[in-house]
Design a protein around this nucleic acid. Structure first.
Lengths: 189, 189
DNA sequence: TCAATATAGTTTAGATACGATACTATAAAA
DNA sequence: TTTTATAGTATCGTATCTAAACTATATTGA
């Protein structure tokens, strides 16, 4: 017998997918394109590559390569080779891409104003954490729950993986290298 | 700024989609086909039509018509014209369809054993209810939260919309006609 | 009673996502 | 310096998805 949680997760997911698709369609684009815009608006500077995007969306890089080409063509994103490791193509939203995303978001097509309910966020994070670790997937979390994050004097943050200092907005972004700290959001048994 | 809940719902949804796709692929079928099997295993006898399925999955009937034809061909479902209203084609899982679904579910490919966490279920239901009513979508809930459901003597259930008596297993299924009662799971403000 | 309308589903065509495979280019390792 | 690993591209076949036109059945209402 399928668990009740599963039933509602399925439903939530179906709903989310179809609403996203409608929103994308209304903006003259495809579902994946909207998902890409969303991801790029949320990810930090370590995570803006095609590879990370593929891991996040659960798609192969070949598939994404096409979508990215389309979006660059359409002027919503830019691809810039990484100056240090030239295998990487860093992805950036253009002004047009940001504007489009804002237009969609502000239209409240996707979802109503969900209340900033800490309990809901924590609940979803627990489910996610459990699920992801069960399947050996990356967690794509924010710094505050990451074991590499240290808060130094005065509440300023630093990533102990890269050594870089993190701004207030950096800390809110999602990261490909994120790993839950053992205390915060431990997986459900 | 996108709300935190939205970020995690997006992630949950991406993850769910890609995991479902993998599970479907491993079973030699497509994502939609698995979703159809799941739906048919959960829906009650008022909800086993292509139309309801389309509303649940957020797809057009034309698209589903093809998928259903494929699945009937493959022997996983049956389509029987409704004896009363012959416009309807009632959908049923065949023995093979049920077996396939059981094989996938028991493989724990889709998700680990989520704990039967009442708080999580309630949380997700609240989000869902809010979202659905905001977008004028059907809720596809179970009888226990439905305003048409009356429990008569000895805990037996009856649907006041159709007048029919409902068995214990009926009550756990999801229904196209479901509407939240005003008390249970009221939408968030 | 019979035309108009609504509803359930099918069919078809075009766009495109997706996976698989083979490929290039760059970087790291041995 | 050869080998191996990694990031991304190119190409092809399959199948989904939407939209629009269509058939069939049921309901409405003049």
């Amino acid at each position: 017998m399928m668990s009740d949680v599963r039933i509602w997760l399925d439903r939530l997911s179906s709903l989310h997918k179809s609403q996203m698709r409608k929103a994308a369609c209304a903006a003259g684009m495809q579902l994946v394109h909207l998902e890409i815009l969303q991801y790029l608006s949320m990810c930090n500077r370590y995570s803006n590559t095609a590879q990370a995007l593929g891991e996040y969306l659960g798609q192969t890089k070949g598939s994404l390569s096409q979508s990215l080409a389309f979006m660059e063509e359409a002027g919503y994103i830019e691809r810039k080779p990484d100056p240090v490791d030239r295998r990487y193509a860093r992805l950036f939203l253009t002004k047009e891409g940001k504007a489009l995303l804002k237009r969609i978001d502000s239209g409240k097509i996707l979802a109503p104003d969900f209340p900033e309910d800490d309990a809901a966020v924590e609940m979803i994070q627990r489910l996610l954490s459990d699920w992801q670790s069960h399947n050996g997937l990356k967690s794509f979390g924010q710094c505050k729950s990451c074991r590499f994050n240290k808060t130094v004097d005065g509440g300023r943050s630093q990533c102990m993986l890269t050594g870089e200092a993190l701004s207030k907005s950096d800390v809110r972004k999602i990261c490909r290298e994120h790993e839950f700290s053992s205390t915060a959001s431990a997986p459900l048994s």
